[in-house]
Nucleic acid binder design. Structure first.
Lengths: 149, 149
DNA sequence: ACAAAACCGATAAAAATACTCGGATATGAT
DNA sequence: ATCATATCCGAGTATTTTTATCGGTTTTGT
């Protein structure tokens, strides 16, 4: 049940874009450096995110990437699904057009995969990039507080 | 976030053993046939489950496998962890001795992976093999009911 | 014109997955 | 005792996925 680097890097990169939202296009190089990701590899992931309509790109000098929507309107679930495919632990419980085997209607294990998918979806679909930015700010505030105690 | 065949086959096989619990040793061949799994491959998975103490094996003619504990006391979570490793989507939020990177304490994405793991664990740790057998019986009852309507 | 930066396609090493095969060993039934 | 039945064990292997790397093309602000 591991997440591959695609999903991990993708969420990190999108979080980085959310933190710099409103500052114009953010260059891939900076994102890769701040998040500790191979630049060329991240480029491929950004292409996927762009084709999925989650980010916009501006080419040429001073170009970069911008979130296609406000951070409030992009969930972690969307990002992961775009980069890793459906959240479902098996094909037979995919959100859309699941490939069910012939005994799916009476398959008991299937009900378990379904519950796993639903539980996971509830978590990732409820977290937006704005939430992450807010949490990061909060954490930063707590750090400063520590110096005064 | 896919489950590999290891976890899927493992849960299916353990469910099969639970359905036949009390009938003495169940041969691998039968399990493989009923669940549609390659016999030799399942053998390897059973070895892992045996070493983890989830099943006992009886060698020789009329031999086979038996659940090491009552179906009430074996959860789906245990089976999946044994065959697939920790439920955690990343190493840094593993249940025991997680391999954290140096910025783990302030890592915002890490809190997400943590929530995913917790949510998933809650589901799979709350389902026992006995629950699955009960659900299967219930489903069978409903099928019979359909003929009478 | 130039440098910055996204875009694109190909390649490739490494790891994981999903088996397959052949034989060794144990044991209940005849 | 023999034999068929089953588990046990180690090795091999084709395929896929992952995780990149590389080199060049195009776009565009300065």
């Amino acid at each position: 049940m591991k997440l591959s680097t695609k999903g991990r890097y993708g969420v990190k990169a999108m979080f980085d874009l959310a933190q710099h939202f409103g500052e114009g296009p953010i260059a891939l190089k900076g994102i890769a450096e701040r998040q500790g990701i191979s630049e060329h590899y991240l480029e491929q992931l950004m292409a996927v995110l762009r084709k999925a309509g989650l980010v916009k790109s501006i080419r040429g000098a001073q170009g970069g990437y911008i979130l296609a929507r406000e951070p409030e309107n992009i969930t972690v679930g969307e990002i992961i699904r775009v980069l890793e495919g459906p959240l479902a632990p098996t094909e037979c419980v995919s959100e859309e057009d699941p490939e069910m085997c012939k005994n799916a209607p009476t398959c008991i294990t299937r009900t378990i995969w379904q519950k796993m998918r639903e539980s996971l979806a509830e978590v990732v679909d409820s977290i937006t990039l704005a939430d992450m930015v807010r949490d990061a700010e909060k954490l930063k505030g707590q750090e400063n507080l520590m110096y005064y105690i």
